[in-house]
């Protein structure tokens, strides 16, 4: 898995603009993500953090500007190609609501593998390993609605990582959790990402959560700002 093709950035957004109706959400945002690094995207509510994440992940198509993933232009890919990318190369952890309430936790974690065509047995074996790794093996056969918030988020992390993604997009992953559970989720997420070599785009407004990152990017009024500290 020699991810670093020609040493360039894994994911790069250049001068991305995106508006919802008359409201601009991104107004010339730029970011680079290198393989394996954890980048915190910070900024006040409504600054465009989540929109930037969605554009980076290929969920939203920017109005203008380009997003490159491993050198390929993400915004010009077909829906099928971007879907496949989400399935194989990307993982997602949101504040809540990304688990399918109808499926058990185990099935939720196995879902991306099964969507990719893996057989149920194999998919669920891999899912079980990840649930154990995230210390939530005990809720494997419960539905998301029957677990606590912290357990649900750890299940979500397991699901994000089960495919061995290159990038994990985490949008306020601890937003609905208390400090203890938040810390636990962050620790497991960052450790697991480091272990598998996945880069993490971590959208948060909490400095304590951002402190798990390797560096931070600040979004303000739809524009990104990177501060280099004179060491």
């Amino acid at each position: 898995m020699s991810a670093e093709i020609d040493g360039g950035p894994l994911l790069e957004a250049v001068d991305v603009h995106k508006a919802f109706g008359p409201t601009p959400a991104l107004d010339g945002a730029a970011i680079r993500l290198w393989p394996g690094e954890v980048v915190a995207v910070m900024g006040p509510s409504g600054s465009g953090k989540s929109t930037l994440l969605h554009c980076l992940a290929g969920i939203l198509r920017p109005d203008s500007g380009t997003v490159y993933y491993r050198g390929a232009e993400l915004s010009s890919m077909s829906d099928v190609a971007r879907s496949e990318l989400r399935r194989t190369d990307f993982g997602f952890v949101f504040q809540f609501g990304q688990l399918v309430p109808e499926l058990t936790c185990l099935e939720n974690v196995a879902l991306p593998l099964r969507l990719g065509g893996q057989r149920r047995r194999e998919a669920e074996r891999a899912a079980t390993e990840w649930l154990e790794r995230l210390e939530v093996a005990d809720v494997a056969n419960k539905r998301p609605g029957e677990t606590s918030g912290g357990q649900g988020q750890r299940v979500a992390v397991a699901r994000a990582l089960v495919t061995g993604p290159k990038v994990v997009f985490a949008d306020e992953p601890t937003g609905a959790l208390d400090s203890l559970n938040g810390e636990r989720v962050m620790k497991l997420l960052v450790n697991a990402a480091k272990d598998t070599g996945a880069a993490v785009v971590l959208v948060t407004h909490e400095a304590r959560v951002a402190a798990y990152s390797d560096r931070e990017v600040v979004v303000r009024d739809g524009r990104t700002r990177q501060v280099e500290l004179a060491q």
């Binding site: 099928v80 879907s83 399935r87 109808e102 879902l111 990719g116």
Partner: peptide, 16 residues
């Protein structure tokens, strides 16, 4: 819709 959107997020394509 919510359920299916969640599936889309995990990488199910339109046809799926």
């Amino acid at each position: 819709d919510r359920r299916l959107a969640a599936l889309r997020l995990v990488g199910a394509d339109g046809d799926q």
